[in-house]
Design a protein around this nucleic acid. Structure first.
Lengths: 350, 350
DNA sequence: GTCGCCGATGGAATCGTTTCCACCTTTGCC
DNA sequence: GGCAAAGGTGGAAACGATTCCATCGGCGAC
């Protein structure tokens, strides 16, 4: 008797179809080595009972869980949600589900999430770590046998493959571009100086500026609109105000734009603006904002692809692949010229 | 012997600690009814072995899977990613994981995702259905025993609780507001007329317009920027061009804004603009865009709360709760007045 | 001193699959 | 016509947790 409210089992199907459990198992796994007649009958019973294999039982028998975990600071952030969408797509192509967890950049929550995911035995992990230098995280990643790929931000000393934007180079190119416009005093504006990505971008800015013998002007105090406004007003009030602003992330870019707009400082006439990371309405604002564009979807997509690449071989050789590839994939950025930096692009696709 | 690369099991812990499996099980489930000495020893072994309970085995014994599924058209869309973040938060508070699947509004993919989620026996489902009228979906939802809550969009005849924005009322209020400015010819612009939300909004517009004896001017042909441009140009070229535009979703609002900007039609002087659904830079654009704002996070949060509410009682009474509540929660919108509709708000927080 | 209870503990069955092995037909080939 | 190979099938043992039930001291109460 099949209890109502509960799910029918493989044995239920077998009994009703008058065959053994082995046969039913074979049917739901491709139907090889089963006679056409039996196949048909079993399929009919499955349909009739609404039978759905219990994944938990399969997992217990050592099969893949067909799930991968995504650990990101936030999923509401368009950046990470785009990565997530790309990763989900790849997961789906590999017949897997994506479990999304949010750390809010808190290493404690991050570790908790990782532990929960490990209980669930996800086949792999996509991780955008809260902290680049975390010893605890590196230790954890070294200890577990589950493949991990970090993206957007790597983690030091963990020997884990990572997919990142070439932040350094992107920032260098951005700065070079502002220099080529003839600006001498270029303010680099940002916040959260602990973040790997921002540090790399800062490094790129610094390198380019110093190469040209220009003054390094850095202000990493921006946390929100208020602090951005304060920072910009301060710099504008100096005897030698900046001629251009390079913002390290898009929230900062927007704060800067709003502040300049409010102060009625003409962009790019009085001060030029160029931001790292594109955002949706950058080309709709007046003036439109020039940016360094990162291949966001590629980050998530390639990270997921590398992850599944590590997963597949385990099916062929039953020994876990000995070499955890430590490769770091660096994706190039693109300088998108709009009006805020002083360029006068002929046309831009909407 | 513990195989390397594999996970230690509860039995491994028991052996190493010199206790029975029952005792270890009790330890990892709160440590009640275990002597302090044993508790300590077992904990030490767990730590040493890096033991992590295998969730699959627990599930097989009839425990909760501690996972809920989220089925949405897209996760890159800021609207759904905000819902997802809210839902994730609630799930975490209930010690559960959130599995995210993307349908791309394709009923076929949707059904496939639902089936995969059912294999995994998620404790519950949060669903933003692709199609309001789908018979197949209603049938499926009626058949499964897993609790489901739909959000943003309900599904007809499924008797499933849903959390939605009061689209009708929001659109009515928006239209009323435009009418109160004295505009007589108000164009309602949108696309995808099959979507529940847009239909409701259209209904609200229509109701308000007719109540005032004004002409109903509807154009649901907008799919992308091109079609928006074409639609707006056509309407502007008529002998009696519209004095205001009410856009039914934010992508349309943006297309409309860009078109008017390109055509150098002054907003709101020559034509007013008011959109349904807020978006990030609506207040930064010039003019800033007046919108109907939905409580997006609340949608995801409340839907998840209702879902877990249905999950909890099952622990007390072991009979599945007989009454699937069919309640529909309707969340109110907010009219956010900026400049594009002709208002002159004193101040707006950034 | 025994009785009965309680706290601490362990043995073993169970959950729903997969899979190893064994068995029984066919069938093709000499 | 015999015989191996191959195809179709099923029984039963895993997988790793939970949990029912039994056992076993110790101890206060009579």
């Amino acid at each position: 008797m099949i209890k109502p409210g509960s799910h029918p089992t493989l044995a239920d199907v077998a009994r009703k179809a008058g065959v053994g459990t082995t046969t039913v198992s074979r049917v739901i796994n491709g139907g090889h080595r089963v006679s056409p007649r039996t196949l048909k009958r079993v399929h009919a019973v499955i349909e009739q009972l609404g039978y759905m294999p219990n994944q938990a039982a399969r997992i217990l028998k050592g099969e893949r869980t067909k799930t991968i975990g995504l650990v990101v600071p936030s999923i509401a952030d368009p950046f990470f949600s785009s990565c997530a969408e790309a990763a989900q797509e790849i997961a789906r192509a590999h017949d897997s589900l994506l479990i999304v967890t949010v750390t809010n950049n808190d290493p404690h929550i991050e570790m908790e999430n990782l532990n929960v995911l490990m209980r669930h035995r996800t086949d792999g992990l996509l991780l955008a770590p809260a902290n680049y230098q975390s010893e605890a995280l590196a230790e954890f990643l070294g200890r577990i046998s589950t493949p991990v790929v970090t993206f957007d931000r790597p983690v030091a000393k963990a020997g884990v493959p990572s997919v990142v934007t070439d932040n350094y180079n992107g920032a260098r190119i951005a700065t070079e571009h502002l220099v080529s416009h003839g600006y001498k005093r270029i303010l680099c504006l940002g916040g959260e100086p602990t973040l790997y990505t921002l540090r790399e971008r800062l490094r790129g800015y610094r390198h380019a500026i110093e190469e040209h013998g220009l003054p390094v002007i850095v202000d990493m105090s921006v946390k929100d609109y208020k602090s951005a406004e304060y920072a910009i007003e301060s710099h504008l009030a100096t005897s030698q105000p900046p001629e251009a602003i390079f913002t390290l992330k898009n929230s900062t870019t927007i704060y800067a734009f709003e502040t300049l707009q409010k102060l009625r400082v003409a962009i790019p006439k009085s001060i030029a603006l160029l931001g790292f990371d594109d955002f949706e309405l950058a080309s709709t604002l007046r003036p439109s904002i020039s940016v360094i564009q990162q291949p966001i979807e590629d980050l998530g997509r390639i990270a997921a692809e590398i992850l599944f690449e590590q997963l597949l071989p385990a099916k062929k050789s039953k020994y876990p692949s000995p070499k955890k590839r430590q490769d770091q994939v660096k994706l190039e950025t693109r300088l998108v010229l709009r009006h805020s930096c002083g360029c006068n692009p002929t046309q831009e696709p909407a």
